[in-house]
Computed example of a mutant assay.
Amino acid sequence: MEVPGDHLAGNRDKVTTIKVGNLKLYVIGIEDLIIDRLAACSEWKSDTDCKQAHYMLRYYFIAE
């Protein structure tokens, strides 16, 4: 889970709102999550982000 600041780098149209009790959670689109992880993988050579991007790409394309 990540709690970003006020700026959304992704597409606002793809944000999903999930209600948990009295709370509202805003989840960015899978495409934006994948782009974010690929950027971190490339820019910071983050092995964790590379693995997460790979997993999401596999899962996303299998589910579609």
Results as ranks from 00 to 15, higher is better:
residue 1 M to L: 08
residue 2 E to R: 09
residue 2 E to D: 15
residue 2 E to M: 13
residue 3 V to N: 15
residue 3 V to S: 15
residue 4 P to H: 04
residue 4 P to I: 07
residue 5 G to V: 01
residue 6 D to M: 11
residue 6 D to Y: 09
residue 7 H to T: 08
residue 7 H to F: 14
residue 8 L to K: 00
residue 8 L to P: 01
residue 8 L to D: 06
residue 9 A to V: 09
residue 9 A to C: 13
residue 9 A to Q: 14
residue 10 G to Q: 03
residue 10 G to F: 06
residue 12 R to P: 13
residue 13 D to H: 04
residue 14 K to A: 14
residue 14 K to I: 01
residue 15 V to C: 06
residue 16 T to I: 14
residue 17 T to K: 08
residue 17 T to C: 12
residue 17 T to P: 05
residue 17 T to Q: 12
residue 18 I to V: 08
residue 19 K to L: 09
residue 19 K to W: 10
residue 20 V to S: 12
residue 20 V to D: 14
residue 21 G to E: 14
residue 22 N to F: 14
residue 22 N to P: 12
residue 22 N to D: 15
residue 22 N to A: 15
residue 23 L to H: 14
residue 24 K to H: 14
residue 24 K to F: 11
residue 25 L to N: 01
residue 26 Y to M: 13
residue 26 Y to F: 12
residue 27 V to T: 11
residue 28 I to H: 12
residue 33 L to Y: 10
residue 33 L to V: 00
residue 34 I to G: 04
residue 34 I to P: 09
residue 35 I to G: 09
residue 36 D to H: 10
residue 38 L to M: 09
residue 38 L to G: 07
residue 38 L to H: 07
residue 39 A to W: 05
residue 39 A to S: 12
residue 39 A to D: 13
residue 40 A to P: 01
residue 40 A to M: 03
residue 41 C to H: 13
residue 42 S to T: 03
residue 43 E to Y: 05
residue 43 E to R: 06
residue 43 E to W: 04
residue 43 E to N: 05
residue 43 E to S: 07
residue 44 W to A: 11
residue 44 W to H: 11
residue 45 K to I: 03
residue 45 K to R: 03
residue 46 S to K: 06
residue 48 T to C: 02
residue 49 D to L: 02
residue 51 K to P: 04
residue 51 K to Q: 07
residue 51 K to N: 04
residue 51 K to S: 06
residue 52 Q to G: 04
residue 52 Q to P: 03
residue 52 Q to S: 05
residue 53 A to P: 05
residue 53 A to K: 00
residue 54 H to Y: 12
residue 54 H to M: 14
residue 56 M to E: 06
residue 56 M to C: 01
residue 57 L to V: 07
residue 57 L to I: 07
residue 58 R to F: 02
residue 59 Y to D: 15
residue 59 Y to A: 13
residue 60 Y to K: 05
residue 60 Y to I: 04
residue 61 F to R: 01
residue 61 F to M: 02
residue 61 F to A: 01
residue 62 I to L: 10
residue 62 I to W: 09
